[in-house]
Design a protein around this nucleic acid. Sequence first.
DNA 1: TGTAGGGTCTCTAGGGACTAGAGGTTCAAG
DNA 2: CTTGAACCTCTAGTCCCTAGAGACCCTACA
Lengths: 138, 138
Amino acid sequence: MLSIGTLSKRTGVKVPTIRYYEQVGLLAAPERTDGNQRRYGPAQLERLGFIRHARDLGFSIEAISALIDLQDHPDRSCVTANAIARTQLSDVREKIARLQRLETELARITTRCEGQGVAQNCYVLASLADHGFCETEH
Amino acid sequence: MLSIGTLSKRTGVKVPTIRYYEQVGLLAAPERTDGNQRRYGPAQLERLGFIRHARDLGFSIEAISALIDLQDHPDRSCVTANAIARTQLSDVREKIARLQRLETELARITTRCEGQGVAQNCYVLASLADHGFCETEH
DNA sequence: TGTAGGGTCTCTAGGGACTAGAGGTTCAAG
DNA sequence: CTTGAACCTCTAGTCCCTAGAGACCCTACA
């Protein structure tokens, strides 16, 4: 039986975050000691690892809830799990594409201003003021 | 003199967002009509365009405040503007790198599970449960 | 057995950047 | 002059935590 602090160290999830997950129903409420402190078993250690990993991959709490629900019903079809992961994948791809456009723009802006002039002639400021300076869409 | 709605249409910034920017001090409080409605001049139209563009590029409100401050003092050195933009650029690059690692992982997970099986054997669920399945760091 | 100190408890509030809604007022067109 | 869209303020909600206050518990050591 692990205390919340030990669970935290094992999983890398901060103590208040664990309590938060319990509050929003992502992690089941654990047993308590006579003194009202939480004590976790190995199943909950594993589950929190699952949550952590999914969060690291950017899944929302809601999506993780759905995935956990599936885990608890191993006889169900995994179409849903697949759909959730695919949605997440396309989200990630969209974000990458968008960030790459920003990167291009920012790189261009910063290389043209070496930070040696004065605000009045600053290319960074001018670029931000006028979208027409941009070479890509964003 | 533009109403808040017209300003919104011209810049693509939503009405409540414009009020929010005023509240947090990003946009100066404009003149008002006798009936207490906001009226904006061309300078504020331009400024909101600047803000919009910077937000689109992912700059924080705080960073934008600093940039606006520089705009208002055209005699100052633009070292700060340059530094802000460079920080933003490296933030964006970090995010891209991270998302690309996630993409690899998610792509792998989803291609190995076609959604035809049952949750018990689902590769998506298994991968999330056990970090050891992963091929990249994240 | 007493005590020190770190860990834990609940509760509330804050953060960033908005977004939504309620309930009331003003403006401009017809 | 009337209608109805646009505007006003204020509060609360979103997401996913994070921080703090004030009180209680647990364990190791003397």
